[in-house]
Design a protein around this nucleic acid. Structure first.
Lengths: 222, 222
DNA sequence: ATTACTAAGAACCGAGTAG
DNA sequence: TCTACTCGGTTCTTAGTAA
C-alpha cells in the first residue's frame, strides 16, 4: 500500500528532475523542500527505496537518487487520473462488472423498429442481445449525469398492439478498445445500476468476458 | 496546510464527478472507495468541508457533495505539477531570487565579440548588464542537467590581449511572461548557483524587481 | 438505514544523538 | 558535515455506539 505522503515525496523528487536523471540531494535539502524535519525526509527516502520507487546511491556526503520505473508508473497513474478529471469533458468512465441480463436486451436488438434506427443513427446492425454491465454503486451519480446528456435518440414506436419507448444511445468503448459499441438507456424509466451495451459483435466472445469480470466503460457524451 | 490524505480524498471525489455536479454519496460508500473505515471517510468529509474545499448538504440518508472553486484550484495546481513532470520535456523551470551581480555580466553584454553574436543568434542587442538569479540550492541538480543541453553557442574570441571563452545561451522566460530574454552560461567553468540573464530590456525595471524578489525562470532547452 | 462522537490503539513526527 | 537510529509526544485511525 502506498501512503499518500510518500506519493507527495515522490512527486517532489520528480519535480527536482529525478525521473530521468540521478540527482544529488541531502536529506536536509529534501526536508526543506517538503517542509519537514531532516529525520522525516530521511525516513521518506528510506521508505521510497524499500518500496522500490526510487534507487539510492549513498555517497560520503549527500546521496544520489533516481526514480525507478515502478516509481514512474505510479506517478503516471496519478497523472492519468488528473487528466481524467480535467480533460475528459467529452466522456464518462465507469467501472463495473459483467452480469447476465434477464433477456430485456433482446427487446432493443430484435425489434425491427429499433434495429432500423440503430443502422441509421449508429451505423451498425446490432448483434441480438446486449452485454449487461453492473456499475459500481458509487458511480450511480455519474450515471445520473449521463442521463442529462442528449446522445442519439431512437424513437419509440407501436407494434404488436403495444408501445416500445424511446431510448437514448451513446457511443462507447470497452476497456478502451476500438470495437464498435454503444450503451442504450431507456428515455424514461427507473434508475438502474445496469448498463446495456449493443454492438455489431458478440461482445462476450470478442472480449472473452464471463459473469463477474471487471470492465472499464468509456462513454462518449457528445 | 493541506494534509496529503485530504488531497487524495478530494481527488477521489473529483473522479466521482463532484467537480461540476452535486453527487450523492454516503460515508460508507466513500469509505469503500478510498479503502478506509466509515469513520475515517466521515472525518475526511468533515475536514474537507471545514477547509472550504467541498460544499456539503446533508440529507436524511447520504449527503450531497460538490467541490468548491478553492477545491478545484487545489486540484488544478496538483495537475499542473504533473504536467510539469511529464510534459515539459522541452523546458526546465527554476525558482530563485534576484541578487546583485558583481559586474561580470557586463562582460557578455559589452564586449563587441559577444554582442554581435547575440544579435545574430538570439536576434536582439543586449541591454548592458545581466540580471542575476540565485537558484535554490536544491535545484542545482537541474542546473547540471541544463549544462548537458546544446543550446546556442556564442564562440569565444581574443581581444585586448586576452581570451574570452565560449558561452551557451538558452531562450528563457521570467515569471512566464513573454519578454525576450535568455540565460547565459560559460561553456567551461565552475558550477555556480547564479544564473545570468540577458535581454534587450532592463529587466529590473521591466519586472519591477529588487534584490531578494522571488522569480520563476523557464528555460527552453531546444 | 445514516452521520459522527469518544476513546484507545496504531502510526507518524522530530529532537537528540551515534556512527 | 552526512544518514538514520531511538523514543517520547502528537496525530491519525477505527471499533463501539449515540442520535
Amino acid at each position: 500500500m502506498m501512503e499518500t505522503y510518500l506519493l507527495k515525496a515522490l512527486k517532489e523528487l520528480a519535480l527536482l528532475g529525478a525521473l530521468d536523471n540521478w540527482i544529488e540531494i541531502s536529506s536536509n535539502e529534501f526536508a526543506e523542500r517538503i517542509k519537514s524535519s531532516q529525520q522525516t525526509a530521511s525516513r521518506y527516502l528510506i521508505q521510497l527505496g524499500r518500496n522500490g520507487l526510487i534507487e539510492r546511491r549513498m555517497g560520503l556526503k549527500k546521496q544520489m537518487i533516481k526514480i525507478t520505473s515502478e516509481g514512474k508508473e505510479l506517478l503516471q497513474k496519478e497523472y492519468d487520473q488528473y487528466k481524467e478529471i480535467f480533460e475528459m469533458k467529452d466522456r464518462l468512465i465507469f467501472r463495473g462488472i459483467v452480469v447476465s441480463g434477464m433477456g430485456e436486451g433482446k427487446y432493443y436488438t430484435s425489434k425491427e423498429g429499433y434495429i432500423r434506427q440503430f443502422e441509421e443513427k449508429l451505423g451498425f446492425k446490432p448483434y441480438p442481445g446486449t452485454l449487461n454491465v453492473k456499475i459500481d454503486e458509487i458511480e450511480i451519480n455519474k450515471l445520473r449525469q449521463l442521463k442529462n446528456y442528449k446522445g442519439l435518440t431512437l424513437n419509440g414506436f407501436t407494434a404488436e398492439n403495444r408501445t416500445f419507448g424511446s431510448v437514448k444511445c451513446f457511443p462507447a468503448r470497452i476497456n478502451n478498445k476500438k470495437i464498435k459499441c454503444a450503451v442504450v438507456l431507456p428515455e424514461r424509466g427507473h434508475y438502474s445500476n445496469i448498463i446495456e451495451i449493443v454492438s455489431p459483435h458478440y461482445l462476450r466472445e470478442k472480449f472473452k468476458l464471463r459473469d463477474g469480470d471487471k470492465i472499464d466503460l468509456t462513454i462518449e457524451i457528445r
